[in-house]
């Protein structure tokens, strides 16, 4: 603990998210962390702050347990919808465990009836791990690309999911590259089987399908390139001052580094600031523990904007409370003495 007393006074990295607001090139912002640390609250707050300085902001929740509706007390769905009380902030919720069934069903109605090939395609689709989520992700990205939002905030699922989610573009790109190559190699052979039109038994067209896949691949590789561009994409880690959360955050930051995704902001949530004369034993003990981990965070992430957010006595729900809370992302909270 000897080196833990590094002073942060003359630190060039401010303890706010101002840098994100200032970075006008940003297009994708991910907010992620362990479950229950306040990702949704943070992403909503960040969205509110961004809405003040950008033309249009979209907030997307990819968490299967959708909390956006809860946070804003307003129902959101698969389509982007304006948040009440804002003119340039929209939100949508997508289900990453999405509906590949829908996708397949849309292509061939009677997939069971024709047996053979259609069943095989389904098996294939389910055999690639994460393909369903990746598909819905790709769908969303396609949608989002066509809409002209200046900045898009992803409220991601808890850590494990997040990393897989971010990995998808790479995974899918590899898988699709393989499929394309195979189809190029064996296309003529297959066409020999299927006749000159390349008609599959379930009424699909082989060439058409391959073209579709190729299109999907291109979209994804484009998005992938964008995610790896630190001018366009950043990742905001949310954690609480506890060992496991810190551990997960460190792991996540390392993995993000591995994927080449930029991250330079950490939000430390749910900090306790009991009054000096407070005689709440639990609060004081917890404060002490949080202090310890805060020191560790300070030492370890000296090149990050570490934002400290207090634990409030009320639930942060509804527009006004979120706005008040979001203000603390930009103007550091000063605990009452």
């Amino acid at each position: 603990m000897s080196a833990a007393v590094v002073s942060a006074d003359d630190d060039v990295f401010e303890p706010t998210l101002q840098s994100i607001l200032d970075q006008k090139t940003l297009r994708w912002i991910f907010v992620g962390g362990k479950g229950g640390v306040g990702k949704t609250t943070t992403s909503c707050s960040l969205a509110i702050q961004l809405a003040k300085v950008r033309r249009s902001v979209l907030l997307i929740s990819t968490d299967p347990a959708h909390n956006l509706s809860d946070a804003f007390s307003q129902k959101f769905g698969k389509e982007a919808r304006l948040v009440d009380g804002f003119t340039n902030l929209s939100a949508m919720e997508i289900d990453p465990n999405g509906s590949i069934q829908d996708l397949l069903a849309g292509q061939g109605e009677d997939a069971d009836a024709m047996g053979g090939m259609g069943g095989m395609m389904q098996d294939l689709a389910f055999a690639i791990p994460g393909i369903d989520e990746a598909m819905s992700f790709a769908e969303v990205l396609k949608q989002v690309k066509s809409l002209s939002y200046e900045v898009i905030i992803f409220d991601t699922a808890p850590t494990g999911h997040t990393l897989r989610f971010l990995q998808f573009p790479s995974v899918l790109e590899k898988a699709l590259a393989k499929v394309s190559q195979l189809s190029n190699q064996y296309g003529p052979l297959l066409n020999g089987f299927l006749g000159s039109q390349g008609q599959l038994p379930n009424g699909q067209n082989l060439n058409e399908m391959m073209e579709k896949l190729e299109g999907l691949r291109q979209t994804i590789s484009e998005v992938n390139a964008q995610f790896k561009d630190e001018n366009l994409t950043t990742f905001v880690c949310v954690c609480i001052a506890e060992f496991l959360s810190l551990y997960e955050t460190e792991r996540m930051i390392q993995e993000l580094g591995g994927y080449g995704i930029d991250t330079h902001c950490i939000v430390v949530n749910q900090l306790l600031f009991p009054r000096l004369e407070s005689n709440c034993d639990q609060c004081n003990a917890r404060r002490k523990m949080q202090k310890k981990y805060l020191d560790q965070i300070e030492e370890l992430y000296d090149e990050f904007n570490v934002v400290r957010m207090p634990l409030l006595t009320e639930e942060v729900r509804g527009k006004e409370r979120l706005e008040n809370f979001s203000d603390m992302l930009i103007h550091p909270y000063t605990p009452p003495e």
Binding site: A3, F243, Q254, Y293, D295, Q296, I297, L300
Partner: peptide
């Protein structure tokens, strides 16, 4: 100890990896 000296531990861990 990762619990008591998290910063040091994490730095070592990075090097280690």
């Amino acid at each position: 100890s990762s619990q008591d000296q998290f910063a040091k531990w994490a730095k070592l861990r990075r090097q280690h990896d």
